[in-house]
Design a protein around this nucleic acid. Structure first.
Length: 276
DNA sequence: AGCACA
């Protein structure tokens, strides 16, 4: 077997200026030579502890499906160069650290993200277990970074939660939540809130009309309707999240007298109504 | 899908 050094430890390299303007302001790396069965988590694990790393995006192009094993023992070599342009991906607060874009055809798509057999790689167990102090482990070995799950499970990880992508994803771009600060239960990624956001109201919807309906539900405190130059939307504030939830469940999809294009669409608001 | 008020 040819003994080519598969990769150099990063600390042998000269320090790089992080943040801005490497050449031409490019601070994104383009990585090619990845096998078709590479997982976003593996890429994330490659870079996650590098200073200045923000997030990564993995695109399956459908080209080069040789089924190479991603393994430091093989002669498979990654190519890393400055990208032609910066990633346009802006990390939204609370979103995952990486994104997957899968442009392969369904037939070739035998390596689904989140499929049951690729869960719980030791490396990800490791970082998910340490998610509350992600950068506090500088003295540790880096040897797990590329191992891709060949080590025996170290055990004790029964509480690991693997985010599910869900069946109703209409887009090929899946945001995967990792190292998420908010591991609380969410509904479609939205945290429960005692204020509700109400949309799909008719153009002639009135505040009185809405108050009549909402005040039937315990805990209802305040309503604000705004037209925003388009269709009106409303915010309804409740004493408790649980009361907001009850009202949302009861009123979801229901019609007001003024409704003209379907029932109300109700979600938790992104932020609680200001007290005033 | 559309999320303001301070």
């Amino acid at each position: 077997m040819a003994h080519q050094q598969p990769y150099e430890p990063y600390y042998l390299h000269q320090p790089v200026e992080y943040g801005f303007s490497d050449r031409n302001g490019i601070n994104t790396l383009f990585v090619s030579g990845l096998p078709d069965d590479v997982k976003a988590r593996e890429i994330h694990n490659l870079f996650r502890r590098r200073p200045g790393f923000d997030s990564c995006q993995l695109k399956y192009t459908g080209r080069g499906n040789q089924g190479v094993k991603f393994d430091p023992q093989t002669s498979s070599v990654l190519h890393i160069e400055l990208a032609r342009s910066n990633s346009r991906r802006k990390r939204k607060p609370g979103s995952g650290a990486y994104v997957v874009i899968d442009k392969r055809t369904k037939a070739a798509d035998d390596t689904q993200e989140n499929s049951s057999d690729d869960e719980a790689l030791p490396c990800e167990l490791d970082f998910m277990t340490h998610k509350h102090k992600p950068f506090a482990r500088s003295g540790e070995s880096e040897s797990d970074e590329l191992s891709g799950g060949n080590k025996p499970d170290s055990g004790g990880n029964a509480d690991l939660i693997i985010p599910q992508s869900g069946e109703t994803v209409g887009d090929s771009e899946h945001a995967v939540a990792t190292e998420n600060e908010h591991t609380e239960k969410t509904v479609d990624g939205v945290s429960p809130c005692s204020t509700l956001f109400i949309a799909n109201l008719g153009p002639n919807c009135t505040e009185d009309e809405m108050k009549q309906v909402l005040s039937q539900y315990p805990g209802f405190k305040a309503l604000k309707v705004r037209a925003r130059g388009g269709m009106p939307v409303a915010f309804a504030d409740f004493e408790e999240i649980e009361q907001a939830t009850k009202a949302m469940e009861a009123l979801q999809g229901s019609w007001l007298q003024s409704s003209d294009r379907g029932g109300m669409h109700i979600e938790y608001a992104r932020s609680k109504m200001r007290k005033s």
